[in-house]
Each structure stands twice: as C-alpha cells, then as structure tokens.
Design a protein around this nucleic acid. Structure first.
Lengths: 166, 166
DNA sequence: AAAATATGTCAACATGGCTGACATAAATTT
DNA sequence: AAATTTATGTCAGCCATGTTGACATATTTT
C-alpha cells in the first residue's frame, strides 16, 4: 500500500520544494554583496556570463539570459559606466560589440562565484564521493532537451577559454 | 597539474551554471500555464504552499516565502477573489485567517505540480537508481544550515497532512 | 544600390519585491 | 477593566527588472 497507483501518481514534492529553497539560498549570498554596490541579480547574471565567456556577442548573451535587449541594455549600461565591463569592436564584423570584464569586473565576478562555490563545497563535503557528478547529471537532466546540449557545450567551452588565460 | 592549488582554487562553474539553467527551465512549465490565467510566479508559490499546508497561518506563509505581508496581500487577494483559496477563522485564535485551497485551487496546484513532477521524472528516468535520493541530499545540503531542519520538517509534515486526506 | 543584420535608444507598461504609516479585532498582560 | 501586544489588512508610493513597439545607426551582405 505504499505507492498510491501506477505511473507515479504522487507529485515529487520533496524535490519540487527543495529546488525552491535551495535556489533561494544559493542566490542569497551574492545578493547581499550586490546590494552594497547598488546592483541586483540582473547585473550578476550579465557579469557572470561575460566573465565566463570573454568576447561574447550581445546577441549570444541575450540568448543565454533569455531577456530582451532593452532589459539587458539597462543593466549592461551601468556595468559599462562603472567600469566592470568593456566593449570592443568585433575584428571581423565591426557592428559587433564584444564584451569583456575589466580587472575590476573580474574581481567582482570571482568574488561572487567564490561565495557560491563555498556553499556548494560545504554541501558536497557532507555527501558521498561522487555527489558532485550526481548533482551535475541531475541538474543537466532537468534542462529542456533541446537546450541541454548547447548548455553543456557552453559550460565546457567557457572552461577551456578561462584555462587558456592561465 | 590538474588541480590549480590546494583548498579548491577554481570555482565550481558547472554546478553554478547548471543551477541557473535547470531552475530556469524548471519554473518555465508552470509559468506558461499561469500566464493564460493572468497569474505569475508569485501566485504559484502561494497556491503551492497553501495546497501543501492546508490551514496554514498567514504569518507562517510569510516566513516560508520570505516576503512582506504587502507583497503577499496583493497576490493572495486575487487568489481569494477568484476562488482558488479560502480563509477560515482560527478555532483557538480568532484573529488568525487560516488558508485553504478550494477544489478549484487544488486542481490548479496539482496541475502545476504535475508539470514539474513530469520534468523531474524524465530527468530521473535517464539517471542511475538512487538519483532521487542523491538529488534530495544535494539540494538539502545547499540550504542555509539554520533553515535546513525547518525546511525538511515542513516537507515531511506536509506529506503527512496530505496523506491524511486520502 | 538595396536589403539584412547587430546593436542601441526612447517611451510606456506590468509584475512583484520593498518601506512606512495606519486600522481593526482579538488575545494577553497588568 | 484597562492597557498592551499580536495577527492581519490596507493605502500610498518607490524600485528593479521583465515586457512591447517604434525607430536610429552603422556595417555587412546581396
């Protein structure tokens, strides 16, 4: 009498709610730092993906964030004006404005990533070996199938790009 | 030469970014349904936790959502007016307005939970046995330590409450 | 030369956070 | 019984960040 019916009748309440609570706390550490700088989560996202993908095109950033160029423009302008991000003309296509973090921008991006990494590290420290890979597979499997390959490629490519700077 | 330095020098880019993309897609299914009803994510959260915790006090709902009563009031009023949620006087303390979903509210809450459950189910179907438990442990471990016990208790209690209705 | 593309900008609007002030009813304390 | 505290609601306004639609400019492609 444990299972109510075939084909998984009962919603997966635990994971639904844990995703809510985990994500809430996961973004809270950066939020506090950003607040002191008069920035919000939107700035964080932009700074993060520019830091991870130096020279990214505006159009590609819009694809990743899935927001309109007007929404992006607002926060991007502030990051540019305050010297966290710079633009350079595309070498081949001079219409493009390729985005790069400045040293100041990189420092902030890394500081925020460090906070989230610390939280993840504390979480994994409590768990079995292989927990990192298990979490990776679960989260990747939650992504829309059409988007999944692109996301995984983006992550892998960004890793190569940043290691090339060492 | 694989690891750059001791004490985990490199940020956990993969999980940081996968949390962003996974959460984005995880909430997208309900978002589409809600849009047709002129509701937003805020309505979903309220409806979800009232459905899962019938008779919850307004104050407790505010604690869970971590928003102000003014923000809650706005969306709660719409859910009340449109017959998704009802209030009853607290039996002991008549100042309290205990919240319950109506049949209509339960139907919507379950429909949204079903969408998220389906996504989780498809994800877990691709993974090893035990992936559910691994995901549960990882997400729970991401929660602030001070909040973690309370969250796990909430989830377990709500499970008991809903099974009592069967 | 014309059309398409990459980007930026102006204006207006919606959602859902927030603060502060104040109101009411009921419970609790003195 | 009176005073205080608690649970909740409400009004008004502000802010961040999403949206649509229209239009401008520079550059590339056809």
């Amino acid at each position: 009498m444990a299972k109510t019916a075939p084909s998984e009748a009962e919603p997966t309440w635990d994971l639904i709610e844990l995703l809510f609570f985990a994500y809430r706390d996961f973004v809270s550490d950066p939020d506090h730092v950003l607040e002191a700088l008069q920035f919000g989560r939107a700035h964080h996202r932009v700074l993060h993906f520019v830091n991870r993908n130096p020279g990214i095109k505006v159009a590609d950033l819009l694809d990743i964030l899935r927001i309109t160029k007007q929404s992006l423009g607002r926060v991007l302008k502030q990051l540019l004006d305050q010297g966290y991000i710079t633009q350079r003309e595309g070498p081949r296509d001079r219409r493009q404005r390729l985005l790069y973090v400045t040293p100041k921008g990189q420092a902030l991006a890394m500081r925020l990533a460090r906070l989230q990494t610390d939280r993840i590290g504390r979480a994994l420290a409590d768990l079995e070996p292989g927990a990192h890979e298990a979490a990776h597979r679960f989260l990747a499997a939650l992504i829309d199938p059409e988007a999944r390959a692109g996301v995984l490629k983006l992550i892998a490519q960004a890793d190569r790009a940043s290691r090339a700077d060492d």
